[in-house]
């Protein structure tokens, strides 16, 4: 088991997340796919932290903690936006909110 295993896994998870973001219409499901992509990034960060120099290991793990923090904040805000969207439009379909689409 080496670094490359984790990198390939991370790439696969990220690609699945990209498919989810592009192919879904439900705003909640798009957010779930976004979480998958954030986790792929975290796997990469922590794998590099584990296999790199020990002096740099803390950097990778601390940045992963920040990514998790921002992900939590993002979920809170996105859920508030989706609730507001549902109250105003009675729908969580992203195709219903294309007012700003060029």
């Amino acid at each position: 088991m080496s670094l490359i295993h984790f990198q390939i896994l991370s790439a696969a998870l990220f690609s699945i997340g990209i498919y989810g973001v592009l192919a879904r219409r439900n705003a909640v499901l798009i957010l779930l796919a976004l979480e998958l992509m954030l986790n792929a990034v975290n796997i990469n960060l922590i794998a590099f932290a584990a296999y790199g120099e020990l002096a740099q290991a803390a950097t990778g793990q601390v940045i992963a903690i920040f990514v998790i923090t921002v992900a939590a904040a993002e979920v809170g805000l996105a859920m508030a936006i989706i609730l507001r969207l549902f109250r105003d439009r009675s729908s969580v379909d992203v195709y219903d909110v294309d007012v700003m689409k060029w």
Partner: peptide, 16 residues
């Protein structure tokens, strides 16, 4: 949020 938005009613819209 899934419970509050009753998102299950929109099952058919997974077809993009």
């Amino acid at each position: 949020v899934i419970m509050l938005t009753r998102a299950q009613e929109f099952r058919s819209m997974s077809a993009n």
